[in-house]
Write a protein that binds this DNA or RNA. Structure first.
Lengths: 110, 110
DNA sequence: TCCATTTCCTCTACTTTGTATAATAAATAA
DNA sequence: TTATTTATTATACAAAGTAGAGGAAATGGA
């Protein structure tokens, strides 16, 4: 067993990992910065939400709207979190990649 | 530095790794079996070639047709191999994933 | 010879993911 | 009550993922 006929797209994969890292404070702007800071990925905010929403539809994440904050422009944020199914898929994806990387050697000069 | 504005898709990633594993003997049917055996991925042969050809166009792989073999139906095979650019991208992809996985914990019960 | 069979590759059309831009919404400060 | 700020939503298009049918090259036996 392994595959299960459903895979995480490349960007989906990164997004789920960003959510895992950020924990309870995962909302659009923060997620975006996380990706930028950690792997220099410049995702537009629209790209981000579109993908997150698709994953919500598929049951890999859930979202909920929080309270507004007291700062200027501090409207309520939408927080995302990874579901059990999302985590399962993450785990599977990681395992598959580890298997495929097994024995593969990439030389220094690259 | 990191991103570079070009990423490996999920399937592209797996295919490049399959080529690395198979080395000089990477042709359609074998690659397909490699994916099936290692990660239980059932890719149609059409899906496989389409993706390989797109990657060739992008410069991540090259291909060349070999000699027919003496067996029944042993027509010439088309062999694929990963280019230096493909390897560079593989390496970058791996690094990015390692960074994103950093500190992420997935519990047993999944 | 020529047709059935085998192995392998090509074509093509469609779905899903990745992506950016523009628009909208809610909040606060003046 | 409007300008500004933070944040999300809508929409449209390009790229990647995918399957299925069809074509090509080889061999073995009528």
């Amino acid at each position: 067993m392994s595959d299960k006929n459903s895979h995480l797209g490349e960007f989906e994969h990164l997004l789920l990992l960003a959510l895992m890292q950020l924990g309870g404070k995962s909302h659009g702007t923060l997620i975006r910065h996380n990706l930028k800071d950690l792997v220099n990925r410049d995702a537009s905010i629209g790209a981000l939400y579109a993908t997150l929403e698709r994953m919500e539809k598929k049951g890999y994440v859930t979202s909920s709207v929080g309270e507004p904050t007291a700062e200027r422009g501090g409207r309520a944020k939408r927080y995302f979190e990874v579901t059990a199914e999302g985590k399962k898929l993450l785990k599977q994806t990681k395992k598959n990649l580890e298997v495929m990387w097994q024995g593969v050697q990439l030389w220094q000069n690259l």
